[in-house]
Amino acid sequence: MTSRALILQCLQCALVFAGAPLLAGWVEQCRAWFGNRHGAGPLQPYRVLRKLWRKELVVAHAASWVFRTAPYLLVAAMIIAGSIVPLLAPIVPLAPAADAIALVGVFAFARMVSALAAMDIGTGFGSMGARREMLIGFLAEPALLMVLFTPALISHSTSLAVIVRQLTTTRLFLYPSMAFAASAYVMVLLAENARIPVDNPDTHLELTMIHGALHLEYAGRHLALMEWAGAIKLATYMAIGIALFLPWGMSATGSASGIALATGLLAVKMTAAGTALAAIETLLAKLRLFRVPEFLGTAFMVAVLGILVHFLLGT
């Protein structure tokens, strides 16, 4: 493990940690534009975070330590996830900690923590949000795993770094199976990050919200952490998608110039992905909760089709 790799790892951590709100802001801004609104600008999340930071920390009487530790654990889990995905180069010293499957596991861990925290106060909304969140979780996870299986089968490894190295270092090769995987992945991403059509990130209306209900009792710096964790999660999912389906342009060796190029390319890809996400959200309408299984079931089927295509057409 070289010092360059270490530097790269730190850079990546910082990038994910600090850049995630920007991405979230950009998506919001695009949605505003698509909705014919001005929008508050891509930097708005930072302002919100700063405001929450300063606010008094208000906690319900009934809250136990589960409630209070959850925000920290969530952010930590998301940062771990974000630092494992190859962002700029397929050189990730932390990669042995978790492969793609473990990454799904880390997200599941975070989901459980947030659901338990939401149930801690004992309010109706909290437990409702928790059960809906868990519902989406167990529906989305099989689909996500099937998505990840396609590249894993191609590269004979579930390690993201290995997959990306395989995809970037061989000459440009179009895998038809990956097209299926990519579309399934987008659907999973929408569900997992509480986006339309599964959830509406803008509303705290009880009938529609899923994710928002989990945050309902949080205030002050806790809420800030929760929001930040959400932003990192979105960024990480985007990063995974980019690493798997658009890995070109990453620096294979991790040289300074390569990294610079890769960073630039990453910014472009992220911007494009954010715009696309906003476009999808604007074009679609929110589904009823019990339509979500159908939606995710479709995602699962598409991912399975991807695997079958892989077997049929080979590599």
């Binding site: 208000v58 009934a62 009792e217 710096r221």
Partner: peptide, 11 residues
């Protein structure tokens, strides 16, 4: 910021 215990908000 200091921590303050209150009744739950619950919307």
């Amino acid at each position: 910021a200091p921590l303050r215990r209150v009744a739950p908000w619950n919307g």
